[in-house]
Amino acid sequence: MTHFTASLYRWITLIPFAALALYASEASANTYPLPAPDSRLVGETLYHTVADDGGSLEAIAKRYNVGFLALLQANPGVDPYVPRAGSVLTIPRQMLLPDAPREGIIINLAELRLYYYAPGENSVTVYPVGIGQLGGDTLTPTMVTRISQKRENPTWTPTAAIRARYLAQGVELPPVVPAGPENPMGHHAIRLAAYGGVYLLHGTNADFGIGMRVSSGCIRLRDDDIKHLFSTVPVGTKVTIINEPVKASIEPDGRRWIEVHQPLSKRIDDDPKTQPIVLNDKLKAFEAAAQTHNEFVNKALTLRAGVPVEVSSPPENGAIDKT
């Protein structure tokens, strides 16, 4: 074992969930048919009964190809290390599409998901992602950019700031990490044009951390997911990164839905479970409408479960209002 391998191993063991057993089976990318242009609700909620040897929450998240925090938020109170055998977990595989043009890649940092609208396909593929850690030089910024480059078996050249941060944790990084099993970027990297090309979508050589704030600013995907995305997304594709913890939709049948995620912490002492959520004007109008059940909205804003919840008021005289 090289010095770098040993050091990286020691660093990994400091991270919760790193040594937890994973299911042998892995879910493929989650692809959904696109709904009508005036609809944003896709997928369906699944349920999983924990077996006696059901493993960790990370293992279950990987099995269904959802993010760790998404699964944890959808199941408050569950033990992330050893979920109780026989308990039924909500698998958050239903969602509202982001309120943005259905074009290229859209990454919503608050929900830790990447949406890819392949050109000419009437579908959307959704991947859980890891994003930048809390910190001045590790945050993943919002941006509108394009893919400038794709590389298989990339090398990793950590910045001086990254090397200093690892060194403080007892890991001495080399100036360049070659392609291979020791490379934390995995086997595929997709470079974004903005900010001089310092941000990438890339894989990982570790199975933990997807659906969490773990990276140095890049967007991290499970290795099978980045391989799938790499094979389908062309250079030049538009990439939009947003930060919207609340999504809402009025569906064609008049029903109103809201999906609330925990907002990203801005400071180390922020509690995303109670941190204030500021609604934009469009969401305020949605909340204030007579057709919206305000109590249901307030409950969703409090629970922040990250799954779509219907918040329609009972229609008077059986009428359906689509405004």
Rank of each mutant, 00 (worst) to 15 (best):
G170K: 01
A18F: 08
H261Y: 10
N280G: 07
Y9D: 14
H261M: 04
I320Q: 00
A29I: 08
I226A: 10
Y115H: 14
H3R: 14
T90L: 13
K282W: 12
S215P: 07
G203H: 07
L301Y: 02
A27L: 02
E310K: 00
G77T: 03
A118F: 06
A288R: 14
D281P: 01
G136A: 13
Y166W: 08
G170W: 10
P16I: 08
N294A: 13
R220A: 04
H228Q: 11
G197V: 09
V78F: 05
S123Y: 05
H188Y: 15
V309Y: 03
Q169D: 14
T155Q: 05
V307Q: 00
L20A: 15
L192R: 10
T159F: 01
F4Q: 02
S7W: 03
V176R: 13
E182K: 02
I210M: 10
E310L: 01
P272F: 02
A21P: 09
R191D: 01
R213H: 13
L109D: 00
I242Q: 03
T45E: 11
A305E: 11
A118E: 14
A74E: 04
L34D: 10
M212T: 15
T13N: 12
D269Q: 11
N30K: 11
F17W: 05
S28N: 09
D253K: 08
T13H: 12
Q149M: 13
R165K: 14
T274L: 03
R256Q: 04
P234G: 11
I60M: 08
I250C: 07
A59D: 09
K238R: 15
N122S: 13
V82A: 12
D271V: 09
A110S: 15
A21E: 15
D52K: 14
E259S: 08
A70S: 15
D207K: 15
H293N: 12
L173T: 07
A100C: 02
V50F: 12
R84N: 07
I242T: 14
V311M: 01
N65W: 11
A51M: 10
D253G: 01
D137R: 14
I147T: 03
G180A: 09
R304W: 01
G197Y: 03
A29D: 04
S148W: 03
L109H: 02
Y199M: 12
K150T: 02
L41H: 02
R191C: 03
V88G: 03
F17D: 15
V278S: 08
G236I: 12
G196T: 07
L301C: 07
L201N: 06
W11Y: 13
A288P: 02
A29E: 11
V50G: 07
A319Y: 04
A248F: 06
Y166Q: 10
V246F: 09
R165H: 09
L89D: 06
K238I: 09
A6M: 06
T159G: 13
L167Q: 14
N153P: 00
E182L: 06
Y9H: 13
G196I: 07
A164G: 08
Y64H: 11
G180H: 12
T140N: 07
V307T: 12
P181G: 03
L22R: 15
V88Y: 05
G217R: 11
I320K: 00
T31H: 06
K62D: 15
L46C: 00
G43D: 10
I241N: 10
S265A: 15
Q262T: 10
G55L: 12
P174S: 08
V246N: 05
E121D: 13
